[in-house]
Amino acid sequence: MKILLMGHPNVGKSVFFNRLTGANVIESNYSGTTVDYTRGYMSLDGKEVEVVDVPGTFSLDPKDRAEEVAVAMLKEAKDAYVICVIDSSKLERGLYLALQIMEEGYSVIIALNMDDVAEDKNIKIDNQKLEQVLGVPVVSTIAIENIGISKVISRLKDAKPVDVEDITVMRAGMNHCGRCGRT
């Protein structure tokens, strides 16, 4: 089993990686700190699992060398689990990458990181609803303070490939949801 940490630049993938594996890769507060991948190991249910800190990428259509590395990493690990790290205060654009990865058939778990920043900005995300719509586990985290990391680990087993068609159907259902009264 292999776990890839993916997400936009500067959302905290390297922080996640260090917390998960106890490794030391450089973390900074700017995009493009990680330009190459780093492998590490964590134990999950008594087994050694490989974790890869993948350079940040905005989409699966690479724009620079670091993004090329990211996309190549994903392509060569067909059966990998992907922890998609999203900046909670920028959910929409984070979801774009998450959906792209899901469309490729990977088992995805979403970590809504920097929950504190979103809170500062008064942005609230309904995790349960998001989880229900997407069909993949969604966990709020503040990786830098080690909050939510163990929850991500414990929910890894719930990650499974999802057909985006189900999401679109689900969305159609939500749009016409009589009970909640919203469209």
């Binding site: 929409e92 942005i123 998001l130 939500m174």
Partner: peptide, 27 residues
């Protein structure tokens, strides 16, 4: 199934409308 970028953004928009609430932003 794979989406094209427009479909993907549409999907994201509608998901976000359901799950995200924006409070008043303080400077």
């Amino acid at each position: 199934m794979k989406l094209n970028p427009d479909e993907r953004w549409d999907l994201i928009d509608s998901i976000a409308r359901h799950v995200v609430t924006y409070g008043e932003y303080r400077h």
